[in-house]
C-alpha cells in the first residue's frame, strides 16, 4: 500500500515538473503534435473554405499537420461551444466567423459560450463585403431607383435571405433602416436557393455576399451598390452605398482564427505572425482579390477590438430585425 502510494506521489511530482518545463519550453517547441481546427459548419461553406485555404500553408510553416474537424449545428453555436471547452494549449483552433461570434450572442439566450471572455483572438483571415443586387430585368438601375420604387410602394417589395438571423437578413434590415424603406423579408433555406429566387425575379433585392458575383458577371443580376466603406476590387464601377446617399451600411462578413481563452501569448503571437505572413504572399493576395476578400495584417489585439466592435454593432441590428431571442 505504502509503496503504491509513494509511487503515485512520485509520478504526480514528475507530472507537475514536466508541466512546468513544458510551459517554459512552449514557445520554442510549439507545435510538437498535430493541430485540430474546428469548423462549426458543414463542409463546403464559406467558413469551411477559409479553413481549408489556410490549413495547408499554415501546416507547412508550423511543420505539423492541421486536421480540420467539421462540427456543424445551430448556426455554428454547437461546435463553437464545444470548442471553448477544449484545453487552451494551442492545439485546438477555431475558424471563427460573423454569425456564431458576433450575431448569435444576440439571437440565442442559451449560447453555451461567452463571445468575448471565452476566446483568444488570434488573427483575422479576411472579410468580404456584400452587394445590393437585383434581378437582371428589375426596373431599378441604381440604388436610388430601388429606394424610390420601395417608397412609392411601401410593403410591396420583397427582399430575400438565407434564413432568419442570417447575415443577408440582418444586412437587409441595415439597408432598409438606412434607406428608410419598408419591405417584406422572405426566407430561403440557405444562400443558394435565395440567389436562385432572385435570378428568377421572385424577390426584388438582396444584400448578398460575393457568392452573387458570378451572377452579376453573367448578366443574371445587377449589382447596384456595395455595402462597405470602399469600393470592391472585383466590381470597381459599382458605387458604395455611402456614395449614393444611404450612409452607414457596412457589411463585413469576417473569418478569423481563434483559440480557447488562456492560450499562452507566445503561441497566439506565433500563429498570428505565420497567418499574416501567409496572407501577404502574392498567390494568396491574388486569390483573395478574386473573392473580393480583404485581409489586414492585424495584431491579435486589433482583431479582438474588431470582433468586440462587431458584437456591439449587431446588438441593435438584431433588435431592429425583429428576430426573436431563442433558447
Amino acid at each position: 500500500m505504502e509503496r503504491g502510494w509513494r509511487s503515485t506521489m512520485q509520478r504526480w511530482c514528475l507530472g507537475v515538473a514536466m508541466l512546468a518545463c513544458a510551459a517554459a519550453a512552449l514557445a520554442q517547441t510549439y507545435p510538437s503534435k498535430p493541430i485540430r481546427m474546428i469548423v462549426p459548419w458543414p463542409p463546403g461553406g464559406g467558413v469551411d473554405t477559409a479553413a481549408r485555404l489556410i490549413s495547408q500553408p499554415l501546416s507547412e510553416r508550423l511543420g505539423q499537420p492541421i486536421v480540420i474537424e467539421n462540427r456543424p449545428g445551430v448556426a455554428g453555436n454547437l461546435g463553437t461551444a464545444q470548442f471553448t471547452k477544449e484545453p487552451a494549449d494551442g492545439y485546438t483552433l477555431l475558424m471563427g466567423s460573423l454569425s456564431p461570434n458576433a450575431v448569435n450572442p444576440h439571437l440565442y439566450s442559451k449560447l453555451g459560450f461567452d463571445p468575448v471572455k471565452d476566446f483568444e483572438f488570434v488573427a483575422l483571415m479576411y472579410y468580404v463585403p456584400s452587394f445590393l443586387v437585383v434581378p437582371a430585368n428589375s426596373p431599378a438601375n441604381s440604388a436610388k431607383d430601388l429606394v424610390e420604387m420601395a417608397r412609392k410602394n411601401p410593403g410591396k417589395l420583397n427582399f430575400g435571405s438565407g434564413g432568419v438571423g442570417s447575415s443577408q437578413h440582418l444586412f437587409g434590415v441595415m439597408f432598409n433602416t438606412a434607406a428608410k424603406i419598408d419591405a417584406v423579408h422572405v426566407t430561403y433555406k440557405g444562400t443558394a436557393p435565395a440567389e436562385a429566387a432572385l435570378v428568377a425575379g421572385q424577390i426584388d433585392y438582396m444584400i448578398d455576399p460575393p457568392t452573387a458575383l458570378p451572377f452579376v458577371t453573367s448578366g443574371r443580376m445587377k449589382a447596384l451598390a456595395v455595402a462597405s466603406k470602399q469600393r470592391s476590387v472585383s466590381l470597381p464601377d459599382v458605387p458604395t452605398l455611402d456614395e449614393v446617399g444611404i450612409p452607414g451600411v457596412y457589411t463585413s462578413t469576417f473569418y478569423g482564427i481563434m483559440a480557447p481563452a488562456g492560450t499562452p501569448k507566445p503561441i497566439v503571437d506565433r500563429l498570428n505572425k505565420e497567418i499574416n505572413a501567409i496572407l501577404q504572399t502574392p498567390d494568396m493576395q491574388a486569390r483573395l482579390a478574386k473573392a473580393s476578400a480583404q485581409s489586414h495584417n492585424w495584431s491579435p489585439q486589433e482583431f479582438a477590438d474588431f470582433v468586440k466592435g462587431e458584437i456591439e454593432r449587431y446588438r441593435e441590428i438584431v433588435r431592429l430585425s425583429g428576430a426573436k431571442q431563442v433558447d
Binding site: 449545428g73 445551430v74 453555436n77 454547437l78 461551444a81 439571437l107 442559451k110 453555451g112 434564413g163 432568419v164 438571423g165 428576430a323 426573436k324 431563442v326 433558447d327
Partner: peptide, 12 residues
C-alpha cells in the same frame, strides 16, 4: 420566425 420548435431545450 427562427423560433425553436419541439427542441426541448436540446441544442442539437
Amino acid at each position: 420566425t427562427g423560433i425553436a420548435r419541439f427542441s426541448f431545450e436540446i441544442p442539437e
